[in-house]
Simulated assay, not measured.
Amino acid sequence: MNKFTVFVKESYIELTEKVSWPKWEQLTQSTMIVLGATLFITLLVGVMDFVANGSMKFIYSLFK
């Protein structure tokens, strides 16, 4: 149990004194970049899915 207590104390000290946390502006900017990239990739995958679906329907219609 002693090792766990030391770990918790050292973790607390590291998180409060040694870690440099981002400022609010940096955090919101990073969040917007991630949100934009996520939306872009989602749109790209959606378009690819739409094209693949249409292509497969066309190919299947040839063999009816």
Rank of each mutant, 00 (worst) to 15 (best):
G36M: 03
V51T: 14
T28Q: 10
M56N: 01
V6L: 01
S55C: 08
V6I: 06
V51I: 15
W21Y: 09
S11C: 09
E10G: 06
I13T: 13
L27P: 01
E25Y: 03
A37T: 15
S20N: 11
M1L: 10
V47R: 09
I41A: 04
V47H: 06
N53P: 06
I59D: 06
K23T: 14
T5Q: 11
F50V: 12
E17P: 05
N53I: 12
K3Y: 08
F63W: 02
S20D: 05
S20I: 12
S61Q: 03
L35Q: 10
E14Y: 01
T16F: 05
K57W: 04
N53Q: 10
N2P: 00
T31R: 10
T28L: 07
M48G: 08
I33V: 14
L35E: 06
S20P: 01
L27S: 09
L15D: 03
T31F: 00
E25M: 08
V6Y: 00
T42R: 07
I41F: 00
F50E: 07
K3R: 15
L39F: 02
G36T: 14
F58W: 06
T16I: 13
V45A: 13
E25A: 12
T31Y: 00
G46F: 04
M1D: 10
G46R: 12
F63H: 08
W24K: 15
T38V: 10
S30L: 06
Y12I: 12
L44V: 13
Q26D: 03
A52S: 05
L35G: 09
D49E: 07
A37K: 11
V6W: 00
S11I: 11
G46D: 07
V6H: 01
T5A: 12
P22T: 14
M48L: 01
V8L: 01
N2L: 05
L62G: 08
K9D: 14
G36K: 11
F40S: 07
V6C: 02
V34A: 05
N53K: 14
L15E: 05
T31V: 09
F58N: 10
K9I: 15
K3V: 12
M32I: 14
E10L: 08
S30F: 01
G46C: 09
M48D: 00
T28S: 10
L35R: 10
F50R: 15
V6R: 07
E17G: 11
L43N: 11
Q26E: 03
L15R: 15
Q29T: 09
A37E: 03
D49I: 14
D49S: 13
M1T: 15
